[in-house]
């Protein structure tokens, strides 16, 4: 079985983001970029499936600017077999919306015919949480989002999902789309030998136009603002004083 993993290049989770002066978005110039952490979980899970003999090829695909090939190389260094880059933007600030991404992925799925698409539940940049679901809908496939555990057996997968209030286990028929949640696994670090090997792995480049998908934005960002700063706290001397202060603040 072939596993397809979409990976997104996003601002590194450790970077303190800064809003652009004109409020149109977050400043991405000269900022450290990394693979979306939820996608890393997906890459890890796919490699584990391969190591367990449940998958025979792991293909990663990224959509966005040309620099996303760094993200693909990281996935290859983790252990993916080959990569596809779909160049859909020139400007690092142009975000490709979930529906366009899902359409592009659907086109890749038609070419590649994977038995499983494993994707991150959302990207940490805009937290849309939509691409996986849209892709399943476009393909007419089953879906199992927010996976905490994935077991592939024959023509189906048993997925334990993280849902409000607990865990839900579903059985889905392959091919299917599964999205990863935080506790699925702990992704490995790329070792230097594997980074070197990754250089020799194939990375195919296409454009959105090649796949006949219009990626023009349909959403308009009205405003981006930084969260309000936290006000300094105060120290209280006793429980009575604490209760009085809370009452004063109108929270009890």
């Amino acid at each position: 079985m072939k596993v397809l993993i979409p990976v997104k290049r996003v601002i590194d989770y450790n970077v303190k983001v800064r809003v652009k002066a004109d409020g149109s978005g977050v400043d991405l110039a000269n900022v450290k970029m990394s693979m979306n952490p939820f996608d890393e979980l997906a890459v890890e899970e796919a490699i584990r499936l391969k190591e367990a003999g449940k998958a025979d090829e792991v293909v990663v695909v990224s959509i966005g600017v040309k620099q996303a090939q760094e993200t693909l190389r990281t996935a290859l260094a983790m252990g993916a077999d080959r990569a596809i880059l779909i160049v859909a933007a020139d400007d690092v600030h142009q975000d490709i919306e979930p529906l366009a991404v899902a359409k592009l992925l659907a086109a890749v799925v038609k070419d590649e015919e994977p038995g499983l698409v494993l994707c991150g539940k959302q990207a940490i940049d805009n937290d849309m949480n939509a691409t996986g679901q849209m892709l399943a809908a476009l393909l007419g496939w089953s879906q199992a989002m927010y996976a905490n555990k994935v077991e592939v057996e024959g023509d189906h997968a048993v997925v334990t999902r993280e849902v409000d209030g607990g865990l839900q286990t579903v059985k889905v028929t392959l091919p299917t789309v599964i999205s990863t949640d935080l506790r699925l696994n702990e992704p490995r670090y790329a070792s230097l030998p594997n980074i070197m090997k990754a250089k020799k792995k194939p990375l195919e480049e296409k454009t959105a136009a090649d796949l006949g998908v219009d990626v023009a934005p349909r959403l308009t960002v009205v405003k981006t603002a930084e969260p309000a700063g936290r006000a300094a706290g105060i120290k209280v001397g006793s429980v009575d004083e604490l209760v009085a202060k809370l009452k004063e603040a109108g929270v009890v």
């Binding site: 000269n30 450290k32 990281t74 260094a77 790329a190 070792s191 980074i195 070197m196 990754a198």
Partner: peptide, 18 residues
């Protein structure tokens, strides 16, 4: 990209990142 100067090529940057 690090905010400080590096002399690393792409492979070394990937290793440094790891």
């Amino acid at each position: 990209m690090s905010k400080h100067m590096t002399f690393d090529d792409d492979d070394r940057l990937a290793f440094r990142d790891s």
